[in-house]
């Protein structure tokens, strides 16, 4: 009897120590990725990367969707979790950079530890293929100038990145148009097609689903790859006007981050896993099929690249204020 108890005790001690050893080896359980948007293309792309990164880590990596407040709800929630590396945040430009600039969040992107750049997705300003009032972006701007406040457009949700970029463009041309918010991007595109909206932001996925329905007026990126995914439609570099937008500035993108207090070795493990995952050809192909572009920057380039985007966005912030003031003065 005694030997059994002794044996049992020994077994417990041994299993406890092995457990202790196992603890040192990160990760020993599921690592979660907090994604700041609802289900859709962006979440699917994050799932592709998370799945591959999970395979590199040897653990599952589920994606948890926590939408709300332009993405800040997800970021707040992720950063309130313990800084143990078991929570990674899908750092989209809106919560990470844009909302602090608009005064809706109190952090700076330098507060967080970057893992690796994930993806970018360019968008375009699109109209209907059967439009008769104009035939080019500049033509539409002329129409808009002659008829202040007459144009109706959508950027998806209000004060998001496409809204900021479109407002900046409209401001540059002195055109006042009414933005109509939509929670589901697909519905804005649908209302564009059926003639309710005059123009709208169109992402690659929407365009590829039905290219014949759109007249892509302006691709909001200087990258040749983005222009190519809209079948060589005019891009911002083709305009006579210089909009001062470059690099990731006018685009949506995400850079995965963790809590600043995450231990160095844990962060290093996560960085390695993500970098390996991002380099895998199957991952890159899967991302490109959804119309997103995989990014190759690692954590050392985080500060440099995001600083440039930040200064561009700050300049664009004024455009939103300008648009609001113009719409108010039209109401009167």
């Amino acid at each position: 009897m005694r030997t059994t108890i002794k044996g049992l005790l020994a077994a417990v001690v041994i299993s406890a120590t092995t457990l202790g050893v196992a603890r040192a080896e990160f990760p020993e359980r599921t690592v979660e990725l907090v994604h700041p948007w609802g289900p859709g293309n962006a979440m699917s792309v994050s799932q592709i990367i998370a799945k591959a990164m999970g395979e590199e880590l040897g653990e599952n990596m589920p994606v948890i969707s926590v939408p709300g407040a332009a993405g800040t709800k997800g970021q707040i929630m992720a950063m309130e979790r313990p800084a143990d590396g078991y929570t990674v945040f899908d750092g989209y430009v809106a919560p990470l950079l844009l909302q602090p600039i608009l005064g809706n969040a109190d952090w700076d992107f330098r507060d967080f530890k970057p893992l690796h750049a994930a993806v970018s997705n360019a968008f375009a300003i699109g109209g209907r293929a059967d439009e008769t009032r104009w035939s080019s972006f500049e033509g539409m701007m002329e129409y808009g100038k002659e008829n202040p406040g007459a144009l109706r457009y959508s950027s998806g949700t209000r004060n998001n990145l496409p809204h900021m970029v479109i407002a900046k463009v409209l401001q540059s041309y002195g055109v006042v148009a009414q933005n109509v918010p939509y929670t589901q991007d697909g519905n804005a595109v649908k209302d564009l097609k059926s003639g309710i909206l005059d123009f709208s932001f169109v992402n690659v996925g929407d365009y590829k689903a039905d290219p014949a329905a759109f007249e892509i007026l302006l691709v909001m990126s200087e990258l040749p790859g983005a222009k190519a995914s809209y079948d060589d439609a005019p891009a911002i570099t083709d305009l006579e006007l210089d909009l001062n937008l470059s690099g990731l500035g006018p685009m949506g993108w995400t850079w995965w981050i963790v809590h600043p207090d995450t231990p160095e070795d844990v962060t290093a493990t996560l960085r390695d896993a993500m970098e390996t995952a991002m380099k895998r050809p199957d991952v890159q192909e899967a991302i490109e099929r959804v119309g997103f572009v995989p990014l190759e920057w690692d954590h050392t380039q985080y500060e440099e690249i995001l600083s440039s985007v930040q200064s561009q966005l700050e300049a664009m912030g004024n455009a939103l204020i300008w648009e609001e003031e113009q719409l108010h003065s039209l109401d009167r």
Binding site: R29, T30, E32, N60, P62, P82, D84, Y86
Partner: peptide
């Protein structure tokens, strides 16, 4: 693959 709350002791 749900991670249940671990509490202050981080028990998972």
């Amino acid at each position: 693959s749900v991670v249940l709350p671990g509490g202050t002791f981080g028990l998972n």
